[in-house]
């Protein structure tokens, strides 16, 4: 790891000021992606701005039909939150299955979203539930926020502060993990809110998370696993690598979507 200077602001405003003033500064949240990347010297920021001491980035709040989660909430905190478990049990279950217990004690929802790893779990939940990503400057709908592999709408010096989820009537996530890395080979989040159904897929797409509209149409007619029989995901645009080729990933998308619907129905 190359040397850097370290800064620990108390407020988002101070953090934004540091990002603007310091050359080549990067935000560190839980650090469970950034530090490994820095160890490999794939990133070498000149300064780290640690959000670990910013209280306004913590907290979970239910507001009417929405659930607002602070960017620095760890995966374990989201998983164990009574408010999340009650409002969106599918999201609590998703958080409970990210990485391993130690990673969940450290990794954060804001960090995961800002990084937009193509195999990360949270982006699928954000897309499926039409989340709003709140930053220190503006509010960004999830579908505008995620812009391909590791790409987001975030501008220089912009900091994710909260994620606001609309509470669905039913939702669940199912993932097929890579047996070695435990990242999603394919992960599917299915959410139903009134007559609307959204199906978001992570891990599989060559340009990151995407919506599987054919499945959405089928599930709108009847929200049941059976509705997805014969609905095939298109393998073009899916990743092919040593872990799984595009055809296999396409197959898994259907299987995971059906499992997610089953879980959402509480079966």
């Amino acid at each position: 790891m190359y040397a850097f200077t370290y800064h620990r602001p108390d407020t988002v405003r101070q953090a934004a000021g540091l990002l603007a003033r310091k050359d080549d500064a990067k935000i560190i949240a839980g650090g469970h992606t950034l530090l490994p990347t820095m160890k490999q010297r794939l990133a070498s920021p000149g300064a780290l701005v640690d959000l670990g001491g910013v209280p306004e980035l913590k907290g979970i709040e239910r507001k009417g039909r929405g659930l607002i989660i602070g960017a620095m909430m760890t995966h374990a905190e989201v998983a164990e939150s009574a408010a999340v478990q009650e409002a969106i049990p599918g999201l609590a279950a998703l958080a409970a299955n990210i990485g391993d217990p130690h990673v969940r004690h450290r990794g954060t929802i804001g960090g995961s979203i800002a990084n937009n790893d193509p195999a990360a779990d949270y982006p699928a939940a954000c897309i499926a539930m039409g989340a709003i990503i709140v930053t220190n400057k503006r509010k960004i709908p999830a579908e505008d926020f995620f812009q391909g592999m590791f790409g987001t709408a975030l501008e220089e010096g912009e900091i994710v502060t909260k994620v606001a989820f609309g509470i669905p009537s039913r939702s669940a996530y199912a993932k097929f993990r890579n047996p070695a890395s435990r990242y999603a080979l394919v992960g599917v989040y299915v959410a139903k809110r009134g007559g609307e159904v959204r199906v978001a897929v992570t891990g599989a797409g060559a340009s990151g998370v995407f919506r599987w509209t054919a499945a959405e149409e089928a599930l709108k007619k009847r929200f049941a696993p059976k509705s997805l029989e014969g609905v095939k995901a298109d393998p073009s645009g899916l990743n092919s690598d040593i872990h799984a080729d595009a055809e296999y990933r396409a197959h898994l998308i259907n299987v995971m979507a059906r499992r997610a619907v089953e879980a959402a129905l509480g079966k």
Binding site: Y6, G31, H32, P36, L48, P101, H102, V103, H105, R106
Partner: peptide, 8 residues
């Protein structure tokens, strides 16, 4: 519990 190799 945390992994001390991935914390500063």
């Amino acid at each position: 519990a945390m992994k001390s190799c991935t914390l500063l």
